[in-house]
Amino acid sequence: MDALKSAGRALIRSPSLAKQSWGGGGRHRKLPENWTDTRETLLEGMLFSLKYLGMTLVEQPKGEELSAAAIKRIVATAKASGKKLQKVTLKVSPRGIILTDNLTNQLIENVSIYRISYCTADKMHDKVFAYIAQSQHNQSLECHAFLCTKRKMAQAVTLTVAQAFKVAFEFWQVSKEEKEKRDKASQEGGDVLGARQDCTPPLKSLVATGNLLDLEETAKAPLSTVSANTTNMDEVPRPQALSGSSVVWELDDGLDEAFSRLAQSRTNPQVLDTGLTAQDMHYAQCLSPVDWDKPDSSGTEQDDLFSF
């Protein structure tokens, strides 16, 4: 819950932080000083300027060897085509990944977070970031790969997607708890209302004896509580940590079903599988986004697919 609360507080303090972009060759504004600060901008989305290598189908939802083989196929196909790589912007948030063309600003792909089953910074092609997700059109699994400016960037994108998945799962947990509370309150309110109706004398007997209905007592009954809980029953509950912020979080049926399955089948359902080692994760978390744009010590960066 700490990640969720800190993310909400950060967004309320400075929503404009989320509009910064990394990996864009110096076009961005001043960047936060450390990885923790940038992680807090996830709610509205972190932007990464990358190059799209392509996509291939895979048979399993996750796995280092599986993704490595898929990336190898994608890279080989991209090299064989001889075409310049498409420059894209990857927007990562707890909602998922939005992929747009840098030149036309046209939407290429919009992947809900619950469809993503794996992401990684490839070991062999260490400047490549990739994720595996279920197609929104059918049940097939797709591996999408992107060329980053350097290994640090690939690791940073991988960690960002993993963190977005974690925050999304926490949102789901909060929403589920809130819905259970509202359902319980609604049920209790309905029981109270039913009890009051059972003990209320029939209207005919009131008229016969000349008694008047006590409207004041009726007004004191917990009807307002019942209506408050039943009027918006169809509205999706939102985490309290975000009250007053500009973010509107809505959970669709697909996300609810997917996270429910994860909660039942996995020990740590909030953790998205990645190909990063503990050492890689520690190294990337210690980086400032400013470091992502620094040239690798191995030599001059080449803006070309064939540089790796």
Rank of each mutant, 00 (worst) to 15 (best):
D37E: 11
V128P: 03
A241M: 00
S288D: 02
P201M: 02
I98G: 13
G96S: 04
H137T: 07
N102F: 12
G189C: 05
Q20W: 05
Y114S: 05
D291V: 02
S224W: 00
R266A: 00
K30G: 09
A154E: 03
G82I: 03
A3I: 09
V207I: 15
G210D: 01
M233N: 05
A76M: 07
T267V: 02
K152G: 15
T300Y: 01
M153S: 08
I12H: 09
G254R: 02
G189R: 05
K84Q: 09
T120L: 00
A3P: 09
G190P: 02
Y52F: 13
P222Q: 08
G82H: 10
D101Q: 11
A162M: 00
D214W: 09
A241S: 03
G190W: 14
Q136T: 08
T225M: 12
N34E: 11
A121F: 05
T104M: 00
K91C: 13
P202K: 07
C199Q: 14
V236Q: 00
S140F: 05
S205E: 08
L272M: 05
A130E: 10
T209F: 13
A80G: 13
K127L: 11
V75L: 15
E142Y: 15
V157T: 00
S298Y: 13
R261E: 08
L305I: 15
V157H: 00
D253G: 11
E188W: 11
H125A: 02
Q173R: 09
L242V: 07
G189T: 06
V92W: 11
M55W: 04
V88E: 14
A228Q: 04
D296V: 03
L212E: 00
G24Q: 04
E250L: 11
T149G: 07
S246A: 09
A195Y: 05
Q285K: 01
L276Q: 01
A10I: 02
H137V: 05
T158F: 01
A70Q: 13
D2H: 04
H144M: 13
V207D: 02
A278E: 07
I74V: 15
E65S: 14
A145L: 14
C119A: 07
K152V: 13
P269T: 02
F169N: 01
M233D: 08
P222N: 02
A284C: 15
A156V: 03
A195N: 02
L262K: 11
L287D: 02
T77D: 02
I98Q: 00
T100R: 09
V248F: 11
L107M: 08
S288Y: 01
G25M: 07
G189L: 01
T104S: 15
E65N: 07
D183Y: 14
T36N: 08
Q106S: 11
A284M: 06
L203C: 06
E109Y: 06
R73C: 12
Y118K: 08
C143V: 13
K123F: 08
S186I: 09
M124G: 02
R39K: 04
T100I: 15
G54P: 02
P32R: 09
L215F: 07
K294L: 04
I12Y: 08
S205T: 15
L107F: 13
M46E: 08
I97N: 08
T277F: 06
T200F: 02
P94F: 10
S265G: 11
A76W: 09
L262T: 05
Q86D: 08
T149L: 11
A69S: 15
T225A: 11
Q86W: 13
E217K: 06
T38A: 14
A258Y: 00
K294D: 02
N105F: 07
D303P: 15
A258F: 04
E33D: 15
C119T: 05
T89N: 14
R266Y: 00
N232A: 07
L159C: 15
S175V: 06
A263Q: 00
A284L: 00
T120H: 03
F129Q: 11
L53E: 13
T56M: 06
D234C: 02
S175H: 00
M233I: 14
R95E: 02
K84L: 10
A133M: 00
Q264D: 04
C286Q: 07
L103A: 00
L90Q: 07
G275Q: 06
D296I: 01
A130N: 05
V92M: 06
E64W: 12
R182T: 15
W172F: 01
P32S: 02
I74G: 08
W172V: 01
D183A: 08
L272F: 00
E65I: 02
S260H: 05
S135M: 13
P222M: 12
R39D: 08
S175T: 14
D122A: 15
D256F: 04
R27L: 14
A263E: 04
L57D: 09
E180C: 10
N102Y: 13
G54M: 07
S260T: 02
C143S: 05
M233F: 04
F171Q: 06
H125T: 09
S246C: 08
L50S: 12
Q173A: 02
G254T: 00
T120K: 08
D37Q: 14
Q139H: 14
I113S: 00
R151H: 06
G26L: 09
L242Y: 05
K152A: 12
R196V: 06
A7L: 02
L4V: 13
R73E: 10
C148K: 02
M124Y: 09
D37F: 02
L251G: 05
W172I: 01
